[in-house]
Amino acid sequence: MARAALALVQTDTKAQWTLSHGVSHSCAMESRQERSTIERPLVSVVDDDESVRESLPDLLREFGFAARAFSSPEEFLASDCVSQTRCLILDIAMPGMTGPDLQRELKLRRQQIPIVFITARKNETVRQRVLEQGAVECLFKPFSDTALLEALNTALRVN
C-alpha cells in the first residue's frame, strides 16, 4: 500500500520530522519536483485501488499535468493540496467516505474543484446523480486515455 499510515515524512520546506496521521502529503514537495515545468495545473487522484493510484499519475504527467494520488477522501482533505488542485479524479465507491460524499464536502467548504468521477461499477443512475451534482464527467472503468484527456480538458475549461 502506498497509503503511509503513521509514516514519517521529511519535508524540505520545514527541516524537521513531523509525525503524520497517514494523510500528510505535501504539495510543496510535489511542486518543487515540478518546478522546472512551473504553472502545470495540479490534478489529484482519489481512489482506493492501488493500481489506479500507481498508473494514473504517470499518465497525467505524460499529459502535462502535475499529479498527486490519495487512497481516500479523508487523506485528500487532510492534505494541503485541496486549494491547489485544478481537477479532481475521484472514485465513487470507497470504504468510509465515498466519492459523492467528498463532492458534497467540497461544496460545503466552497472549494469549487471540477470533478471527473471514475467507477468500476457501471451504474447509469449513480452517474446521472453525480453529474446533476455538478461533476464534469463520470467514466466507467476501464476507460481509455483519450476519454480521460477529453474529460480533463473539459474540466480545466470550466475552471
Partner: peptide, 12 residues
C-alpha cells in the same frame, strides 16, 4: 479494476 490498470499503463 485490473483492466483499468492495464489500459492506463499501456497507454502511458
Amino acid at each position: 479494476q485490473p483492466l483499468q490498470g492495464i489500459i492506463t499503463n499501456a497507454g502511458t
